[in-house]
Amino acid sequence: MDWLQVVVLSVIQGLTEFLPISSSAHLILVPVLTDWTDQGLTFDVAVHLGSLLAVVIYFRHDLKRMAVSWVMSLNVRTLRQGNDDSDARLAWWVLLATVPVCLAGLALHDRIEVGMRSPLWIAFGLIAFGLVLAYADWNKRAGRSEYQLSMRDALIIGLAQALALIPGTSRSGITITAALLLGLSREGAARFSFLLSVPVIVLASGLEIVGLVQSPSHIDWSAMAAGVVLSGLSAYFCIHYFLAFIARIGMQPFVVYRIVLGLWLLWIFA
């Protein structure tokens, strides 16, 4: 990998991981649309680690409160008395919403990797789920925060998240869509989506590391370090500005981008 490829892929991963435009689609398309060789599993692990560090650092105070409250909620006495801690409840909902995508990933990962990574499938995912996102944003109701989610809400969002295995769907896009349809505010939907990314990226990176261990290769440590740093910085600023402006800009600019990109892919590859 040359340094231009390292920089471009790292920044793309950092930005698209949390914007509702599909990071997997963009990382698949870059080598398709350029003469670059595939970046390899090792680099994918590095840039995902950067995104993970970004969201953990950004939400460090929230995650600390949630972790402490969740551990306290496991206390036998607390369970008997009932737990009304909003941070513990949110932590439980994040864990619950992670289960469907884990099960779907284990069951369908190989089939999706082989059969659905073509530009045409990506175009379909971008357009179809972009239109659903548009509908959810246009018809949003009076917004609740992520702390007002119910178990049912968390499970529905988790089931929606499993659809992100389809290239072009966007994990953040589909979870934000589901949350908006359930009555969360744009900020609440985005924050819950970002919190959901922590266990998902941890588990996905874990699978990639297993594959890396099973098929060891030469590692360019300087490229890996640059990937972590650049992906982390771009992801951090993406989270910050997305949350800062989401109430004003809404989801429509991302919908337009998804549809234009999807139609362009159909025009080129259909």
Rank of each mutant, 00 (worst) to 15 (best):
R152W: 13
T175A: 07
G40F: 08
I28K: 07
Q252Y: 14
R191V: 12
V71S: 09
G143K: 02
V94Q: 03
L29V: 12
T16G: 01
D110P: 05
V114I: 14
S172D: 11
S86I: 13
S73L: 10
L243I: 04
E17A: 06
L108H: 06
W3M: 13
G232Y: 03
V255M: 05
L203K: 09
Q252M: 15
L263P: 06
V8C: 10
W36Q: 10
D137M: 12
S205G: 15
L53C: 08
P167T: 01
L108P: 08
Y58G: 09
S222R: 14
E17T: 08
I268A: 12
H61E: 15
V229W: 04
T175K: 05
A46G: 10
Q5Y: 11
V202S: 09
I176R: 03
W3H: 12
L63V: 12
F194N: 10
V8S: 05
V228P: 02
D85I: 03
E17I: 08
V99Q: 03
M66Y: 08
S69T: 08
L4R: 14
F59T: 07
L243A: 04
S170Y: 02
Y147K: 14
Y236F: 15
L261C: 06
F129K: 03
W92N: 13
A247N: 14
G105R: 02
M251F: 10
F124C: 14
L195H: 02
L265W: 03
W92A: 14
A225F: 14
L103P: 06
G188I: 01
A54Q: 01
F237D: 02
R60H: 15
W3G: 11
R111Y: 13
L9Q: 10
G105K: 02
S150V: 02
I249K: 00
D220Q: 14
G50D: 02
I21S: 00
A104G: 15
R111A: 13
F18Y: 12
R144L: 13
Y135F: 15
L266N: 09
N75C: 09
G105E: 06
A178C: 09
R171P: 06
A154L: 07
D110Q: 14
I156D: 01
H61C: 02
I176K: 03
V200P: 09
Q214A: 15
L120A: 14
G50Y: 01
G82S: 03
D153K: 10
V200A: 15
V45C: 01
